[in-house]
Design a protein around this nucleic acid. Structure first.
Length: 244
DNA sequence: AATCACTCCAACCGCTGCGTT
DNA sequence: GAACGCAGCGGTTGGAGTGAT
């Protein structure tokens, strides 16, 4: 599969396309370990790769980069994705910063597969969705009552943010139901209950390492050495402040 | 066993933003 | 300020794998 690729200083050169071979991966890895990330357009010239800089960058970022997590998205990660998507919409790279080891591409793929359902849902799906919507509405009403008593509404604060309102509306449109999206409903009501307060604590500029440290859990998700204020879930340390 | 539907994943494409000249 | 090139981002596509019918 070879085609004409323009851009990134490519000129009329015909770049190789399609799946990467182990040899190409090795060349790219060696190049980056020697020269560091960046200057992708020069990779083709200096690394002996017949690939566009764009392709090289993508391969490195999404597959070869050290520290990438392989395997399924954990429920915790899923929760984070939903929360952050409600905040920022399809800003996958921004969301990815809060999921160490996960790439924007991975998150984007996951979202599309699980939450952006196409076409009409089946009768079963509709029934399940209705049930969960009722549950969520109930929880929402309960929270409204509580916040009215406290005379301050985190939800109002949250919704007063223009981008949040927009992205939530967008997400609602995409999923075809109220937000957060209804998939497996066992944990969503709990999360939704805490959405406002949790979202208040983070911003787009909040560094992910403020949320958790991902290097201190073993393969079973058990702690090597639990830091103060952190709990272990899946393969991550979670700052207890942010656990739903 | 065959077919279909769905999920997962890698990769490409086009667009945008930013820095440099 | 305009033009250009590079880097990054988000949308989309297509193939492989898998489970259900």
């Amino acid at each position: 599969m070879v085609g004409l690729m323009m851009g990134w200083g490519a000129g009329q050169k015909v770049w190789r396309k399609g799946p990467w071979t182990p040899e190409e991966d090795k060349l790219l890895t060696e190049y980056v370990s020697l020269n560091g990330e960046g200057r992708w357009s020069s990779v083709a010239r200096t690394a002996g790769l017949n690939r566009s800089g764009k392709s090289c960058r993508l391969r490195w970022v999404n597959y070869l980069r050290p520290g990438l997590k392989k395997g399924h998205i954990t429920p915790q990660e899923e929760g984070i994705i939903i929360e952050l998507h409600a905040l920022w919409g399809n800003k996958w790279s921004t969301i990815a910063r809060y999921l160490p080891g996960r790439t924007d591409n991975e998150i984007k793929n996951y979202w599309r597969t699980h939450f952006k359902k196409k076409g009409k849902p089946s009768q079963k799906q509709l029934e399940k969705r209705t049930k969960t919507q009722l549950l969520l509405q109930k929880q929402f009403q309960q929270q409204e009552n509580t916040t009215m008593i406290n005379n301050s509404s985190p939800n109002e604060e949250l919704l007063s943010n223009e981008s949040t309102t927009e992205s939530t509306a967008q997400a609602t449109q995409e999923t075809g139901s109220m937000y957060p999206p209804v998939v497996d409903d066992h944990w969503l009501p709990v999360m939704y209950q805490d959405l406002a307060s949790w979202c208040e604590t983070i911003t787009e500029d909040t560094p992910w390492d403020g949320l958790w440290n991902h290097d201190d859990c073993n393969d079973n998700g058990n702690p090597y050495d639990q830091p103060n204020g952190y709990s272990c879930g899946g393969n991550n340390w979670y700052n207890e402040e942010y656990i739903f």
